[in-house]
Write a protein that binds this DNA or RNA. Structure first.
Length: 426
RNA sequence: CGGGGUAUAGCGCAGUCUGGUAGCGCACUCGCUUUGGGAGCGAGUGGUCGUAAGUUCGAAUCUUACUACCCCGACCA
């Protein structure tokens, strides 16, 4: 894409509304704009990243055997009455009436709708286990939305729900999702921890959170310094103990000492058991011909939150540093004098074509600006690799290859393929 | 909901104390010169100063009420 044509309204100065790094950078890089508190429009650059993450999530979910569906955002009161959540949930459940005075809510989650779907359409143990998921906009009227899309009211979430005939089936589904979530976070390229958690209001027995480690994380987690063990400090702390008192204590799993870290919760997996299926009478016939209540699990990933989390974990004072797998563009061709110098234009266009054919997402900065402006923007946007074509090319036949991390080298254009092979591990 | 803060051009700000009809930087438009770390000169565009009411000859400025947004807390997949 040509930089001069794509809609990326970057900001030189930090907007006063953003105090958190990822929020600040998403606004400055022209990824999002606010419509109301906790409600955002995604602009082309932000949307590309969002879609990249969404597609990784989708690929891994499909690979696990889960099937994609799309449920409505608007849900009728009647289903929520069945699980008693119409009364239990507070104002975070946004309720309204249609023109016939019938009550509805905006879906903050979809246990009711999915359980209704399954109980009406799955009748035999032979159709189980099944795992259905969607990637969809959720709405929760948070008490205090904050930090941009990190804690928005409207946000994109992948939520999936597994149904099985017995406890064993649930555990298998849970383990499969646990593995799938690890694959997703590793593929995106983030440093994370699986954290033992309080299952909270959703109910059920077993639950673990996936936290992306970052200094600005909202949650404080205790991790062992010598094992994989991690636990949410909310679970660990008893009567008025301070978080600091945990640091250096023996880890509860018996391995090493506790370290306190900050994390951003990007995923949560639950073994719900029969909580919802009992309330909603979701049963199938077993091989004995008996009606058996379904065992249910639910698994969420905050797709839009992952965008912010990735930035929180990967940035410097110049801007964003995207992991290759989710970068909006892999390579930025910084062409200095594009409109004025025919050789530079033709060479830039040629490289653009060649690299695009190789499967890279390419940005070509054709704007009538100097090197400084262009490299600053590229650094702000976090594009992993830059190819600079300017007067060094005209005079000495050299282009500069410069990574977002700061490595740079000059090379003849002939060597480009070889150089790029080095960065080809996307 | 409790506490704190902000609201003046697209963004960042000054002007408010001490009332006199709005300004700076960046961005944007046009022209010329520039082009390897956010270019220069010249000429321009853009604001009923968050909303409403009040005080006053006169309000961005004083008074009152309201709203929106941000931060801390409670809360939260």
């Amino acid at each position: 894409m040509l930089f001069s044509k794509i809609f990326i309204p970057t900001l030189k100065e930090a907007p006063q509304e953003a105090e958190v790094t990822s929020h600040n950078l998403m606004l400055r890089a022209g990824m999002i704009r606010k419509v109301a508190s906790g409600i955002y429009t995604w602009l082309p650059l932000g949307l590309k990243v969002l879609k990249n993450i969404e597609n990784i999530v989708r690929d891994e979910m499909n690979a696990s055997g889960a099937q994609e569906v799309l449920m409505p955002m608007v849900q009728p009161k009647e289903l929520w009455l069945e699980t008693k959540r119409w009364e239990k949930m507070g104002p975070e459940l946004l309720r309204f009436k249609d023109r016939h005075e019938r009550d509805f809510c905006l879906g903050p989650t979809h246990e009711e709708v999915i359980t209704d779907l399954v109980r009406l359409n799955i009748k035999s143990y032979k159709e189980l286990p099944i795992n259905l998921y969607q990637i969809q906009t959720k709405f929760r009227d948070e008490i205090r939305p904050r930090y941009g899309v990190m804690r928005g009211r409207e946000f994109l979430m992948k939520d999936s729900y597994s149904f099985g005939i017995d406890e064993k089936s649930l555990q298998d589904s849970y383990e499969l999702m646990r593995k799938t979530y690890k694959n997703i976070l590793e593929k995106i390229g983030l440093d994370y921890k699986i954290v033992k958690a309080d299952s909270g209001a959703i109910g059920g027995d077993v639950s673990e959170e996936f936290h992306v480690l970052a200094e600005n994380g909202e949650d404080t987690i205790a991790v062992s310094d010598s094992s994989e063990y991690a636990i949410n400090t909310e679970v660990l702390l008893k009567n008025n103990e301070s978080i600091d008192s945990l640091e250096g204590q023996p880890s509860p799993d018996g391995n090493g000492l506790i370290q306190i870290k900050k994390g951003i919760e990007v995923g949560h997996i639950f073994q719900l058991g029969k909580v919802y299926s009992e309330n909603m009478k979701a049963t199938v016939l077993s091989n004995q011909g008996n009606a058996e209540t379904l065992f249910m699990g639910c698994y969420g990933i905050g797709v839009s939150r992952l965008v912010a989390a990735a930035i929180e974990q990967n940035n410097d004072d110049k801007g964003i540093i995207w992991p290759d797998a989710i970068a909006p563009f892999h390579i930025n061709i910084i062409s200095i004098g594009y409109e004025k110098n025919k050789l530079i234009k033709e060479t830039s266009d040629k490289i653009y074509q060649d690299l695009s054919k190789m499967g890279y997402e390419i940005l070509l900065d054709d704007r009538d600006l100097g090197y400084g402006s262009k490299i600053k923007d590229s650094e702000l946007l976090g594009i992993p690799l830059n190819i600079v074509i300017g007067n060094k090319f005209v005079k000495e036949d050299l282009v500069e290859i410069k990574t977002r991390q700061g490595d740079s080298s000059l090379t003849k254009l002939d060597d480009l393929n070889e150089i790029l092979d080095h960065y080809k591990n996307y």
